[in-house]
């Protein structure tokens, strides 16, 4: 519990500094997303860019949930009871997108 974003034991200034640090990281990641969106060359495939966007988004999500929502500093059982169901849902999203696109292709190409 010692490295908590909001910890009653640490000093006021230290807590506030940590909050602004996380805010700075979030702003930097968003700025990076912009830079990539504009700088990506026209002729390159967008696929790696989109993967990179998703990675950056998950990084932002981690900082918001872990620090702002304080989940990183909760009891392990609480962390798991939030993160595990969400991990299954992420898998559900991936599975439904993959299976769904296969079904759409099959229906579209039904008559050849």
């Amino acid at each position: 519990m010692s490295d908590s974003a909001i910890n009653t034991n640490s000093s006021k200034n230290e807590n506030i500094r940590r909050i602004w640090k996380v805010a700075g990281i979030l702003a930097l990641i968003t700025a990076a997303e912009f830079a990539f969106a504009f700088a990506w060359p026209d002729t390159w495939s967008r696929m790696p860019l989109n993967v990179w966007f998703i990675i950056l988004t998950l990084a932002k999500a981690f900082y918001i949930v872990a620090e702002f929502m304080h989940l990183k500093h909760e009891v392990k059982t609480l962390i798991l009871s939030i993160v595990l169901p969400m991990a299954f849902v992420v898998w559900l999203i991936v599975a439904l997108l993959a299976e769904g696109s296969a079904i759409i292709d099959a229906v579209k190409n039904f008559w050849g």
Binding site: I6, T8, I19, F68
Partner: peptide
């Protein structure tokens, strides 16, 4: 994002 930051600062002030 900024309004989220002001919210955490509010929570932090509440602890004090």
């Amino acid at each position: 994002i900024l309004s989220s930051v002001t919210m955490v600062l509010g929570v932090e002030a509440g602890h004090r």
